[in-house]
Amino acid sequence: MSISISNYPVHLQDGFKPNRECLKSQGSQSEYQKVFHRDSLEVSQLSKNREILMDKIKHTVVQSAASLSDMRAGILKEIREEKGQYGYSDVVNACGLSYARLYSEIEQRYENEQYYKVDGTPLTKEDEIEWLDIQFEQEVAWQKSCARITAQGQVIQGNIPEMPTEEMEELEDSFYQAKDAYMKLYRENRRAERPLVLQSYMFGNSQMYQILNRLGNLQERVV
């Protein structure tokens, strides 16, 4: 004789009478097992989804508009604490070093990992470098603008005869020279496994820095 328990055939010896309560209990246990198995799968999937989400959050990059200027300010703060003050040459070097350090962080991030934008779309190394370039351009424009405004104030007060236009243009060029120099240093140091530290590079001529440093209190403006 054959009977079915929860769709599973069971063969019994002839003359054997099954206990209906027992069969009912076994059927209920089978249903409980199905529910337990289903719930376990759901919990497992939820746990897996959570791990994926946490990993994505970990690999999400928030592109800050102030990361380069913040790093530059930190470097200048260290210079001021060490020397008591800093000049435009230090500002130029700090900007170049900041760019190279942030560039190195970007390269290290993308050695073996994938990162994402805040909206969840993939972020590439090229995207981040492009954003870093924009930050650097804005930083240079800001530094030049501040120097020009200070110089205009000095002209109005009669402290200097005219706007140092040539020095302003040379200052802008110096920032980009610093960027190139520190990127070259970064690549050399990377091959030699040396840390990237501040240098005392002189970009442009010393007369330019003398004129610009006399314009006003640089310490209050830059940091």
Score class of each variant (00 low, 15 high):
101 R>H: 14
47 S>N: 15
84 G>N: 04
47 S>C: 03
118 V>S: 10
81 E>L: 09
106 I>F: 11
93 N>E: 01
124 T>Y: 05
79 I>E: 14
80 R>H: 10
55 D>V: 00
82 E>A: 10
90 D>N: 12
120 G>R: 08
49 N>V: 00
42 E>T: 12
104 S>L: 06
32 Y>G: 00
27 G>Q: 12
124 T>F: 06
87 G>Q: 01
36 F>Q: 12
114 Q>A: 09
45 Q>W: 00
41 L>P: 00
114 Q>C: 05
29 Q>P: 00
60 T>S: 14
112 N>C: 00
83 K>R: 09
102 L>C: 07
37 H>L: 10
66 A>C: 01
30 S>L: 12
88 Y>E: 02
123 L>C: 15
43 V>S: 11
96 G>E: 03
45 Q>V: 05
115 Y>D: 04
122 P>N: 03
31 E>F: 01
44 S>C: 02
77 K>C: 05
112 N>E: 02
100 A>C: 12
26 Q>R: 03
41 L>W: 03
26 Q>N: 05
96 G>N: 09
37 H>Q: 11
109 R>Q: 09
44 S>G: 13
90 D>C: 02
65 A>N: 10
75 I>F: 09
103 Y>M: 04
42 E>Y: 09
94 A>W: 04
40 S>E: 07
45 Q>H: 09
61 V>E: 06
104 S>D: 10
85 Q>Y: 08
53 L>M: 14
52 I>R: 08
92 V>G: 12
65 A>I: 01
118 V>K: 13
122 P>C: 01
23 L>K: 01
73 A>C: 02
120 G>I: 06
98 S>Q: 01
83 K>F: 04
112 N>S: 02
57 I>R: 13
70 D>F: 04
54 M>A: 05
122 P>D: 02
49 N>K: 10
66 A>D: 08
98 S>L: 02
71 M>T: 05
71 M>H: 06
30 S>W: 01
107 E>V: 13
71 M>N: 06
57 I>W: 09
110 Y>E: 04
106 I>H: 11
74 G>L: 02
102 L>K: 12
79 I>G: 10
49 N>L: 11
120 G>F: 08
82 E>R: 07
123 L>D: 03
86 Y>R: 05
108 Q>L: 12
36 F>R: 14
30 S>Y: 04
101 R>I: 15
71 M>I: 04
54 M>V: 11
108 Q>A: 12
37 H>V: 06
122 P>T: 04
91 V>Q: 10
52 I>A: 14
76 L>P: 06
112 N>M: 00
62 V>C: 03
113 E>V: 08
59 H>G: 09
95 C>E: 00
28 S>N: 06
24 K>Q: 15
36 F>K: 14
60 T>G: 12
124 T>C: 05
86 Y>M: 04
25 S>C: 03
90 D>R: 00
56 K>M: 14
34 K>E: 14
50 R>L: 13
58 K>A: 15
42 E>L: 15
111 E>H: 06
88 Y>K: 08
37 H>R: 14
68 L>R: 09
108 Q>F: 04
78 E>G: 07
23 L>W: 02
83 K>N: 08
33 Q>G: 01
58 K>Q: 14
21 E>S: 01
91 V>C: 15
74 G>T: 06
114 Q>M: 08
51 E>A: 13
91 V>D: 08
25 S>M: 11
65 A>F: 03
38 R>K: 09
27 G>S: 14
39 D>S: 15
52 I>E: 13
61 V>K: 09
73 A>L: 00
